[in-house]
Amino acid sequence: MKMLSQLGLGVLLGAVSFSVCAQAVTQAVTQPADPSAPKTRAQVRADLAAWRAAGYDPFDWLNYPENALRAGRIVAQQRAQQAGATAVQ
């Protein structure tokens, strides 16, 4: 009998935790991201990869402000185009 009640309690806790996780995922997908919220490590790495693909070299100190600004403009344009493409579909 005790094992049956522990099993029931485990199933109940599992269902509650699944429900909470599903609700959190749904909110994260449906609500737009808060731009003032801190970024995750994966987001920072993705940003750096996008900037490097746009021509930014973090070790080029001689051309630092120019290459960072140029890469930032390119990444912003790419993201705006992607946002426009997803809004149209």
Rank of each mutant, 00 (worst) to 15 (best):
M1V: 09
M1Q: 10
K2Q: 14
K2V: 14
M3W: 11
L4Y: 09
S5M: 11
S5W: 14
S5Y: 12
L7M: 13
G8L: 06
G8R: 12
G8F: 04
G8N: 13
L9F: 11
L9C: 11
G10N: 03
G10F: 04
V11N: 06
V11F: 06
L13R: 00
L13W: 04
L13Y: 05
L13M: 05
G14D: 06
A15L: 09
A15G: 14
S17F: 10
S17C: 08
S17D: 03
F18G: 15
S19M: 08
A24Y: 15
A24K: 13
V25D: 12
Q27I: 09
Q27W: 12
Q27R: 13
Q27V: 11
Q27E: 15
Q27S: 12
A28D: 14
A28R: 14
V29G: 04
V29D: 09
V29S: 09
V29W: 06
V29Q: 11
A33Y: 05
A33W: 03
D34K: 07
P35C: 01
S36F: 05
K39Y: 00
K39L: 02
K39V: 03
T40L: 01
R41L: 12
A42D: 05
A42M: 05
Q43V: 02
Q43C: 01
Q43K: 00
R45C: 06
R45M: 13
A46N: 08
A46H: 05
D47W: 04
A50N: 08
W51E: 08
R52P: 02
A54P: 01
G55D: 02
G55R: 02
Y56P: 01
Y56Q: 00
D57F: 01
W61T: 11
W61M: 14
N63S: 05
P65N: 04
E66H: 12
E66T: 15
E66Y: 10
E66D: 13
N67L: 04
A68C: 01
G72D: 07
I74P: 03
Q77K: 11
Q77E: 15
Q77H: 14
Q77A: 15
Q78D: 07
Q78T: 10
Q78I: 04
A80S: 14
Q81P: 02
Q81A: 09
Q81M: 05
Q81I: 07
Q81E: 12
Q82P: 01
Q82R: 09
Q82E: 11
Q82W: 02
A83D: 13
G84L: 09
A85D: 11
A85E: 15
A85I: 09
T86Y: 08
T86W: 05
T86E: 12
A87L: 10
V88C: 06
